[in-house]
């Protein structure tokens, strides 16, 4: 017998602290597999966010730092400008990337920083107890929108990836999800491209991953998969939002 799927080298053996059915563990693995496959483990520097994934440095088997809430793109910029031959990526949640860190995200993209951002969108603040995120859906109940998000009071779910696609500096932006094996395999392909772009010096690449947070959504892990399908995807449609490679060929 031959082992064909197992923990990638870029993932430590440590048990993760995420809740049962949380999507973070899947996304961590996809990144680790991509890093293994590209042979870049020894030259990768990861930037972990504030939020549930703050402990990501415990799970990745390469150099990782942790930035202040919302600041990973600025930290990554400092790293990449000093060491342009290293592979630098940030891992950020929706609050980190699209609320407190909006300015850092937008300007890193606009400068065309040659970094990779993996943006995990689960529509809530998980770590702090399920509060409203910038990406919380209309009418979605959270601990700070107990009656559901009312756009008159709390605005709309922010489509930050589409907004970033409008910037001249961004090169590749795709939205994926990990709610089925098929989608997970597609997500990995996107993450791989986002890293390859950096290696090929193409510039700013971001992959938004719609990810499960069953606890904050008040559903079980299996229902959370459907929740993404039925509630999130209609608001945050999957697919390539921007790809300068394809635009250049006239395919997008």
């Amino acid at each position: 017998m031959k082992k064909i799927f197992s923990r990638p080298e870029s993932l430590t053996a440590k048990r993760n602290i995420y809740c049962s059915g949380c999507g973070h563990g899947i996304v961590h693995r996809l990144i680790a597999e991509v890093i293994d496959e590209l042979g870049i483990r020894e030259k990768t520097i990861g930037v972990a966010p504030v939020g549930c994934a703050v402990f990501a440095y415990d799970y990745w088997n390469f150099d990782v730092t942790e930035a202040a809430h919302g600041r990973p793109p600025a930290v990554a910029t400092g790293i990449k400008r000093v060491l342009p031959d290293r592979v630098v990526f940030t891992y950020q949640g929706d609050g980190d990337l699209a609320a407190i860190g909006t300015a850092e995200t937008v300007h890193a993209a606009n400068r065309g920083e040659n970094i990779t951002i993996i943006f995990v969108n689960n529509g809530v603040y998980g770590m702090t107890g399920g509060q409203m995120a910038p990406t919380t859906l209309i009418a979605q109940k959270t601990t700070t929108t107990p009656l559901g998000r009312d756009p008159k009071i709390a605005g709309y779910p922010i489509k930050i990836s589409e907004a970033l696609g409008q910037l001249e500096g961004s090169v590749y932006i795709e939205r994926v999800t990990v709610n089925s094996p098929k989608n997970t395999i597609k997500a990995k392909r996107a993450i791989k491209k986002a890293f390859q772009n950096q290696i090929q010096n193409k510039g700013f690449s971001l992959v938004e991953v719609l990810s499960m947070c069953p606890i904050a959504w008040g559903v079980n892990p299996v229902e959370a998969l459907k929740w993404i399908e039925q509630k999130m995807i209609p608001v945050f449609p999957l697919g390539v939002i921007k790809d300068k490679d394809l635009t250049a060929k006239g395919n997008l």
């Binding site: 017998m1 031959k2 082992k3 064909i4 799927f5 197992s6 923990r7 993932l11 048990r15 993760n16 995420y18 049962s20 059915g21 949380c22 999507g23 973070h24 563990g25 899947i26 961590h28 693995r29 990990v178 089925s180 094996p181 997970t184 395999i185 499960m212």
Partner: peptide, 21 residues
């Protein structure tokens, strides 16, 4: 049949998949 779908979906990366020769 070692399809690995379980592995793809495991959030805890707790599954190893083996295939017979």
């Amino acid at each position: 049949n070692s399809c690995g779908l379980c592995y793809q979906m495991c959030p805890d990366v707790a599954i190893e998949v083996w295939k017979g020769e």
